[in-house]
């Protein structure tokens, strides 16, 4: 049985190469890699910096006065607490938050999305200039810089790109391949051999998982992105790959031919991609997104890649993805048994 599955998987991978689907797997990481080189080059001179100040924080009057006077360079945004500031920072509505330094109460801590960015340098330089103008050469107001996310903008966009890849394989490539095999009666030819429905489905799902893993690996190699919990990360990508590959195979079984499979694939692709990838930027989307399996994949990905999280506390997401994958696999099995749209 295992040999059958491996042979069918190998055959499916060869088909992916022959029908050019593999080009997408290679093209997308390259596209992402090139795109990322155009990101993180903000024109810092074009608009004033938006800096968040916490309302009940006891800032030195000199700092407040200086910043208020330099309104063309820095705009003050008063926020209720640090949590609200972090939300605004994630939504990119402010460029940084100034907090009282816990170790040195007279100085400040600057909280930004990423330490090593042009934006952060511009903020620090602006405050240095203000401080010099107001007080002369004293200790800098900003004594410490903290980053909300590890890594840069490139890394921050990584979960979205990985979600795109997984959904592309699941919703665009696999349904078309399944529908093609139905349309050309190749599944029926295979089912005249000792291959059974379960083996065929498992081979197809494995193909999706292998394609997912390869695409994600290429993306990491090109971008030089490391991961703290590598084993957990690989396992999670595999579970996501299983979920969306099984889902994609199921979509393929709902279609009679390739054209309808591609259309149905896009119909599922975008609603799964956009709410999840944009959930950070919209309260409404944040409330809808958790209903989608793509969000249960995307959320933990962000935690692992951006907050150096581990898989320890993600049992709900694991279970959710495995459940969706298993259910869609089972539905595909039922449709295959009934030779659905295969006549």
């Amino acid at each position: 049985m295992i040999r059958n599955i491996l042979v069918l998987t190998f055959n499916d991978l060869l088909i992916a190469i022959k029908n050019k689907a593999i080009y997408l797997i290679i093209f997308i990481p390259f596209f992402v890699f090139i795109s990322l080189n155009f990101i993180d080059k903000p024109n810092a001179d074009s608009s004033p910096l938006e800096i968040g100040f916490i309302q009940h924080e006891a800032y030195a009057p000199a700092i407040i006065d200086s910043v208020a006077a330099a309104e063309q360079v820095i705009t003050m945004t008063w926020i209720q607490n640090e949590q609200e500031g972090k939300t605004l920072l994630k939504e990119k509505k402010i460029d940084g938050i100034l907090l009282r330094n816990k170790n040195a109460p007279d100085s400040l801590t600057l909280l930004v999305l990423k330490k090593e960015s042009l934006h952060t340098i511009v903020i620090v330089e602006s405050f240095l200039a203000l401080q010099k103008a107001a007080e002369g050469n004293r200790d800098a107001w900003i004594a410490d810089i903290e980053a909300l996310y590890a890594g840069g903008i490139q890394r921050q966009t990584l979960p979205t790109w990985i979600l795109m890849i997984v959904l592309l394989i699941g919703f665009i490539i696999l349904p078309a391949q399944v529908a093609e095999e139905k349309e050309k009666k190749l599944i029926l030819a295979l089912l005249q051999t000792p291959i059974n429905e379960f083996e065929w489905l498992l081979a197809k799902t494995l193909t999706g998982m292998v394609l997912t893993m390869v695409a994600v690996l290429i993306l990491h190699l090109l971008g030089g992105f490391g991961v703290v919990d590598l084993t957990g990360y690989i396992a999670f990508i595999a579970v996501g790959g299983f979920c969306f590959s099984a889902y994609g195979v199921f979509l393929g079984f709902l279609c009679r031919n390739q054209a309808s499979a591609r259309t149905l694939g896009v119909v599922f692709y975008l609603p799964h991609l956009l709410p999840s990838a944009l959930s950070d930027f919209s309260q409404q989307l944040s409330s809808i997104a958790p209903l989608l399996p793509s969000y249960q994949f995307y959320g933990p990905l962000r935690a692992i890649l951006l907050e150096d999280g581990t898989m320890a506390n993600l049992s709900f997401e694991w279970s959710y993805l495995l459940l969706v994958g298993t259910l869609t696999f089972f539905f595909s099995y039922l449709l295959m048994k009934r030779r659905w749209l295969m006549k």
Partner: peptide, 24 residues
């Protein structure tokens, strides 16, 4: 069947070998 259902991208030999393997 009336319309041949073979793996179009592959050679005659590959098609036959794949099915020979699956038929043991």
């Amino acid at each position: 069947p009336e319309v041949p259902n073979l793996f179009d991208f592959f050679s005659v030999e590959y098609n036959l070998k794949l099915f020979a393997y699956l038929f043991r």
